[in-house]
Design a protein around this nucleic acid. Structure first.
Lengths: 208, 208
DNA sequence: CCATTTACTTTCCGACCAGTCAGTATATAA
DNA sequence: TTATATACTGACTGGTCGGAAAGTAAATGG
């Protein structure tokens, strides 16, 4: 996603015909790191084990990422970026707050189901509360995401499509329900994440 | 709360007049451990630092708790026990699902606000998902707590006091909202935890 | 007064881990 | 051919941490 070892060749991956090996390796490490962090948590995961899983050695990882924390941040940033982009795309060309809200929640659930490792890492991976202040870009994305939801609720209330609820409280409640899924959702258990999101939409019954 | 070093004197703390020093020390360690775990997370917290904060040495802690994990489990069990007891007490002699639901949610929020360290340790302290299976007694309490809420919702739906919602989905949604508070609630910021719980009650608008 | 238990302390160990360093093989570029 | 960047590896280090061993001082109890 981002380039950490400053390559002297600007934009190598643009020229087609030659495989962008560096980004491939970076992406592979990132995916495996997300899986490991999701399984064991950040602190309990060791870079030696990550390397072993990848069939690499520890210093090989340091060739692509400058620190363990850097790797962690990259997992979160990638997940968050993908989530926001995906949901915003699901919302494109949609009119009406009812449909928008449904698409937001279902879109979130779908992206979550497809990127559980990243979500688990992002939402429960780090013990303790100090680290909640991530890098600046993550924070910006989080705020944009929550604001997007608030705006949908606001629109619904103002146009009379929704009952009179507080957009701030409502958005936070919705994100709480969706975020907490990370703690109990099992893909093997009956309902899909999207189905659960739809159940939440019905429960809220914002439309009137 | 529980006794781990099997004391030859059965029920020492019952006889008044003599201070129950052992339980005092255990409680002091437990409280400080909860605070430390809440601040830094379980894995990042070291028993040396815990000992230093208490003005003790590391082995002194091992005199009262058999392992770091034991200490962690004790924090969670105490928090969960207190939460369930407190909410059940708040519900006692209450008739009507509307009032019960309000008391459940506000009672939860109040106990959370008064025991944040324990809550943070319990809900975000451990990175990774493997450890979600706690000791058996914790699991029993969790289930009892969720069932309690489900029963309230069921009663409301059956008596016609609430609109037609799914009790399982609704209970999970409510617990999600309340649990996620641990991630963003700040006592310094305007609203109290109880006020937020009441906002959630209104948002749900289960009464009809 | 003595025996036992409680409540610790000092010392230490084995394991592990993030990160470093020095070096190597390969591919590309001039 | 030579120079340079890439993509690594093996060996190592400095530090930390959970936990154990062994001993001590004080209180308790008969």
């Amino acid at each position: 996603m981002t380039r950490s070892p400053s390559s002297s060749n600007p934009d190598a991956s643009v020229r087609l015909g030659r495989p962008p090996k560096l980004d491939d390796a970076r992406a592979r490490i990132l995916a495996e790191a997300a899986a490991l962090f999701a399984e064991q948590g950040y602190e309990t995961s060791s870079l030696s084990e990550l390397a072993a899983r990848l069939g690499l050695t520890k210093p090989a990882i340091y060739h692509y990422y400058s620190s363990k924390q850097d790797l962690f941040d990259a997992v979160i940033l990638e997940t968050l970026t993908g989530l926001v982009a995906n949901v915003e795309e699901a919302l494109a060309d949609t009119t009406g707050p009812c449909e928008k809200l449904r698409r937001f929640m279902v879109g979130h659930a779908r992206y979550f189901a497809g990127h559980r490792d990243g979500f688990v890492t992002m939402l429960v991976g780090f013990g303790g509360m100090k680290n909640t202040e991530f890098r600046e870009d993550s924070l910006v994305l989080r705020r944009r995401y929550e604001q997007l939801l608030r705006d949908i609720v606001s629109e619904g209330v103002e146009t009379g499509a929704f009952r009179q609820v507080d957009p701030v409280v409502t958005a936070r409640a919705i994100l709480s329900m969706l975020s907490w899924m990370v703690r109990w959702f099992q893909p093997s258990g009956g309902k899909t994440a999207e189905e659960i999101a739809l159940e939440y939409v019905e429960l809220l019954a914002l439309e009137r």
